[in-house]
Design a protein around this nucleic acid. Structure first.
Length: 571
RNA sequence: CGGGGCGUAGCGCAGCCUGGUUAGCGCGCCUGCCUUGGGAGCAGGAGGUCGUAGGUUCGAAUCCUACCGCCCCGACCA
């Protein structure tokens, strides 16, 4: 491709709308343009990078035995009503009516559609296992789209769905996808971790997220420094402490006046204690029903854990009014002793002695409180957020928290959708069984953004070779010089003949502009033909990643460059 | 949905508080000259419903009201 002909509007300055680096660089490098919030046009170079990711994904999915198909974006509401998701999915599902007033929606994901297809077409265990995937634009009406392609409303996703005869076979399918994903992200040249993720009602370790490690990541992951343990912070388990059930050391409970002291900090300061000696009582609404949750004063509740414990589909912290309506106590003075609603406690509370809680009375707290003696709870479980000071739940080693961008998620679905939609096959014993399913997603456009988050410098993008829209860019450093121009054209021709994806910067611009643009675009190899060529007949090759330079003759260029490119590709 | 910020040429911004002729600057763009190894220089030029609507006023980019759009934070700790 010739630079003079491609639509590649680079910007010198940072657009005001972009804050995170990948967003800024993709706008500056002329990869994307925004149409409206969370919705972007992909310009030729942006699309080229997207296509690179898609191709790697496609190859690895095919290698893993999955088949590509394409499902509709517009979906009838009836299908979503079958699984109850039409009501449950919420405002992220963009709904509309067609001219016949039929309720429809734009597909944010395709479990319903694929399950409908499979239940119509697959009837025998002999036709299984089956793994079907597509690469397609999805629409999710996100609460707050942000960071360019990192969290758009419209984005490109690869989604795959597996169908198996049994749980055991579904696990095989799951593991295959796990392996395929590792290969995909390795081939993309990304630094990533597969982490255990919340698997909701399915349980077990049957959900993994693939996280690209980058500071701008919206997720926090917990990684053990000594073993292989890695999990999403939402999921990360805490070792249950040895509970001390003896009554030794318990002091009598006392009621104290704490006028106006509502916040943990204020109560602690007033009573001259540390926050770890206090137990806070938070009221959550679990599917609308109030539940009090006890955690140590300096801890934070992990809502996903709470949700799983309660088997609720939705938990949210109650506001002041909801708390008062449920308990008759103003926030700040709640406690488990004599409270009128359900109570669950974090496991850590079981090991605490003589702690402080609210007295369920305005301006009062209780001190020297002990669980078991002064109150009981419905359940004791791991409910709090992991901190960097907690030991690894696997080996007890030290943990580190780090940020990650979720680029892939694999999930065992079981029979959730097949049962809801009566998607069944006839097994070898003649009986009818629901398909055991799994689903596997990769955010294609997010992979591109994540790659840039992880690979850039102050000059611009530094694409890993497998994702680069072009592998090389030839800079004709003096378009008015015939010998140089002839050499640039020759180099361009010979590289193209070899299949090296090359952009020829044939614009009549000064060298400085060409250097800046080449750096900004992040093309892995920059070939410069200019003064050095006039003098000695040499072409300079510069590697974007580290600035490594070498000078070669025009004749040697194709072979040497090809070897350099090959050396950059892993997997 | 709550909070904050912004909306003036393709991009980045100034002007607005304290209303007043023709709305500025840098980059980019067009023409010409010149120049060619890290976003050169000179000269000339094109490009604006100042987000939209309404109001106040002799007069509005500027003041007031409503709406629209965009960005950021939050929607978790009593």
């Amino acid at each position: 491709m010739r630079y003079s002909q491609i639509l590649l509007p680079t910007l010198k300055e940072n657009p005001a709308e972009a804050e995170v680096i990948s967003h800024r660089l993709m706008l500056r490098a002329g990869f994307i343009r925004k149409l409206t919030s969370g919705v972007y046009s992909y310009l030729p170079l942006g699309l080229a990078a997207i296509r690179k990711v898609e191709q790697i994904v496609r190859e690895e999915m095919n290698r893993a035995g999955a088949q590509e198909l394409a499902l509709p974006i517009v979906q009838p509401a009836d299908l979503w009503k079958e699984t109850g998701r039409y009501e449950k999915y919420g405002p992220e599902l963009l709904r509309f009516r067609d001219r016949h007033d039929r309720e429809s929606c734009l597909g944010p994901t395709h479990e319903e559609v694929i399950t409908d297809l499979v239940r119509r077409e697959i009837h025998s265990y002999r036709e299984l296992p089956l793994n079907l995937y597509q690469i397609q634009t999805k629409f999710r009406d996100e609460i707050r789209p942000r960071f360019g392609l990192m969290r758009g409303r419209e984005f490109i996703m690869k989604d795959a769905y597996s169908f198996d005869v049994s749980d055991a076979m579904a696990e095989v399918a799951y593991k295959k996808m796990h392996e395929a994903y590792k290969r995909i992200f390795t081939r993309c040249g990304l630094e990533f971790r597969a982490v255990e993720a919340d698997s909701g009602t399915i349980g077990g370790s049957f959900s993994h997220e693939f996280m690209v490690l980058a500071k701008t990541g919206e997720d926090t992951i917990v990684v053990c420094k000594e073993c292989d343990y890695a999990a999403n912070l939402e999921k990360a388990a805490i070792r249950s402490p040895a509970a001390d059930s003896s009554l030794a050391g318990m002091q009598p409970m006392l009621k104290v006046e704490t006028p106006g002291k509502r916040k943990v900090d204020a109560v602690c300061e007033f009573l001259k204690i540390v926050a770890s000696k206090l137990v806070k009582t938070l009221v959550y609404l679990a599917d609308g029903q109030p539940v009090a949750v006890l955690v140590r004063g300096d801890r934070e509740v992990q809502e996903v854990k709470l949700k799983n414990l309660l088997g609720a589909t939705d938990v949210e912290l109650a506001d002041d009014k909801q708390v008062f309506d449920a308990t008759g106590v103003p926030t700040g003075y709640l406690g488990p002793v004599g409270i009128a609603i359900r109570v669950v406690a974090d496991q850590e509370i079981a090991g605490m002695r003589n702690f402080v809680v609210g007295a369920n009375e305005k301006n009062h707290h209780l001190t020297q409180v002990n669980m078991g003696r002064d109150f009981t709870v419905e359940a004791v479980a791991d409910l709090r957020k992991v901190t960097p000071d907690d030991p690894c739940p696997c080996c007890g080693g030290p943990l580190a928290l780090t940020e990650g961008i979720e680029v892939g998620h694999i999930f065992k679905l079981g029979t959730k959708y097949s049962e809801a939609m009566q998607a069944v096959f006839q097994d070898s014993d003649g009986g009818e069984k629901p398909f055991v399913m799994g689903c596997y997603g990769i955010g294609i456009t997010r992979v591109v953004a994540a790659a840039i988050e992880q690979n850039h410098d102050q000059h611009g993008i530094i694409f890993p070779v497998p994702l680069a829209p072009f592998q090389a860019i030839i800079l004709n450093l003096d378009c008015k010089d015939e010998a140089i121009t002839r050499a640039a054209e020759e180099a361009y021709g010979s590289l193209q003949a070899l299949g090296v994806e090359t952009l020829l910067d044939d614009r009549d611009e000064r060298p400085g502009s060409k250097f800046k643009d080449a750096d900004l675009l992040g093309i892995p190899f920059r070939l410069m033909i200019g003064k050095r060529f006039s003098k000695d007949g040499l072409v300079e090759i510069r590697r974007r990643r580290d600035g490594f330079m070498e000078e070669v003759s025009l004749g040697d260029l194709p072979g040497i460059l090809q070897a350099r490119i090959a050396a950059e590709i892993s997997g």
